[in-house]
Design a protein around this nucleic acid. Sequence first.
DNA 1: TGTGTGATTGTTATT
DNA 2: AATAACAATCACACA
Length: 160
Amino acid sequence: MAKKATKKSQKSTSASASASKPARIADGKMVFKITSTEKMKKAVTNRSRLRSAKPITTLKKKAMKIEATKPKKPPTAFFYFLEDFRKGFQEQNPDVKSMRDVGKACGEKWKTMTYEEKVHYYDIATEKRAEFDRAVADYIKRKESGEDQEAGESDFDEDY
DNA sequence: TGTGTGATTGTTATT
DNA sequence: AATAACAATCACACA
């Protein structure tokens, strides 16, 4: 019991020198509901996808091995729960086709879950983060070691 | 044909 | 300290 959340102090992250400038959107996630110009929304998310620094083509098909890209954020505990919850949800509600409904139901249940149940997913997420952290370190190391560090800071990843 | 969108919370990163 | 944004998934819609 009392499995305290293992909050380990992260590394100093002194590598912040590279300070890549994420194209953050001032508006944040609040997307103006403009039915007329849906393209605007696309533009917003488009930037997000831009971070992928890879051809948008088949972006959703990430199932493909992505070894040429830097490690992305690992799914959070909630996402792991969502993955599991989604399976059962589809069985009980085959009528539901959208993930939105599943997300709502999952989020609602997530709040009702106790720490003991959630800790299970937290544990997984924590472990994944550790691996992710290592992957990042390795990625950086490889980048510096393998490829010449980009002396000229490229403002944006021009596509690819 | 192909990609964007929507919704959930958590974690990370930047300011 | 606080805010911002992204992390995955799947069916649908639009150009």
